[in-house]
Design a protein around this nucleic acid. Structure first.
Lengths: 193, 193
DNA sequence: ACGTTTATGTCAGTCACTGACATCAGGTGG
DNA sequence: CCACCTGATGTCAGTGACTGACATAAACGT
């Protein structure tokens, strides 16, 4: 049980999620997380920049996004490419609903964690914007398409986790995209349901 | 010079901005800010929840937003109401360019501050969405319109502070809005410049 | 003038986070 | 098989953000 147990990082993530769920984020010290993982506090900070990061660093999103945006057929409009990338991202999430639910419960209970989540989403937006520019979209449209896409994703994700919602991510995202198109359209009234 | 000098909070904000600009955010201790303001560290934390908040709490945005969204003529489409509120917000900023520039330089130099800025923008989005619902917009469109609006605001604000940009906020916002409409439109190609 | 309220000061303590240095497992070359 | 090196971990001491409890002094009402 000395040093060199495998997957120290993973054990820390696991221990942290458990403890945050049990006692809450603030009531959990980094020392406690490290202890449950069979490590020391110092080692925790070698794996994660700060206490919050342990909940966010294993997100596989960034890579999938760039790939999915790039995968859209040439000539696809930027916002449509974003829509497809998000649907793709939604698929990746399918399996993880249980864990996502637990994680979001922890995040929902703590403003500091919500703050960090915003950072991650903003970073996702930048990644997506960069991928769009890669395929020839000018900067301003790229940024706006990406940011708007993230807004749709955020809303869809939240609904997906809601128990009263039965639709799956790709469908929720597509409907959010359509709703956004409607709302930014030139119509004079809130569109009928 | 004892207690009761007027405007303790304002003095703290002033001292903080100066010190952050001089030495940087991390290199400035709360004790140093308090000292320059003629107060103690403990008093600082009675006025601001944390060290970052001293840069953000005096934003007069929230109130102006609700008002401006509500002020749009009845029957105005939600996204148009958002557009007008943002233009209004842009006007409020006109005078403050100097200070905004200094503030943004400090923020740009520190990730923790950027994190807090995202929180403030997200909160602005929620405020705007709530104001839209107040005037009858259903929830989903309200959230999407507000979030998209904030994306436009963020981009416009950044450009406004850019030295090579000569346009004023309201115009920048209007052009961002138009760009977003174009990008979420149903066209098949990136629209020509 | 006196009590009350409110803003501030003082002090001790917790905990996130860091730098410097020690240690131990595993691989590598001789 | 041993000496050496590398990388992950441990140990320790320190800084600084933030908090709770209590003391104090200015302002305010009566």
């Amino acid at each position: 049980m000395g040093r060199w147990e495998p997957n120290a990082r993973g054990r820390l993530e696991e221990a942290a999620l458990e403890l945050f769920a049990e006692r809450g984020f603030e009531q959990t010290t980094v020392a406690a997380i490290a202890e449950r993982a069979g490590l020391t506090e110092r080692t925790f900070f070698r794996h994660f920049g700060d206490k919050r990061e342990v909940l966010f660093s294993s997100e596989p999103f960034s890579g999938a996004i760039t790939e999915a945006v790039g995968a859209a057929p040439e000539g696809t409009a930027p916002f449509e490419a974003v829509a497809r990338a998000l649907e793709r991202l939604g698929e990746v999430l399918q399996d993880r609903r249980e864990r996502a639910l637990k994680r979001q419960a922890v995040i929902a209970a703590n403003p500091e964690l919500q703050e960090r989540e915003l950072v991650k989403l903003a970073s996702l937006a930048r990644t997506m914007a960069a991928a769009l520019r890669e395929r020839g979209t000018p900067e301003l449209p790229a940024i706006l398409a990406a940011e708007a896409g993230i807004a749709v994703f955020r809303v869809a994700f939240e609904r997906w986790l809601d128990d009263s919602e039965t639709r799956e991510m790709p469908e929720l995202i597509r409907s959010g995209i359509d709703e956004l198109k409607a709302v930014t359209g030139t119509g004079q009234e809130a569109r009928p349901a």
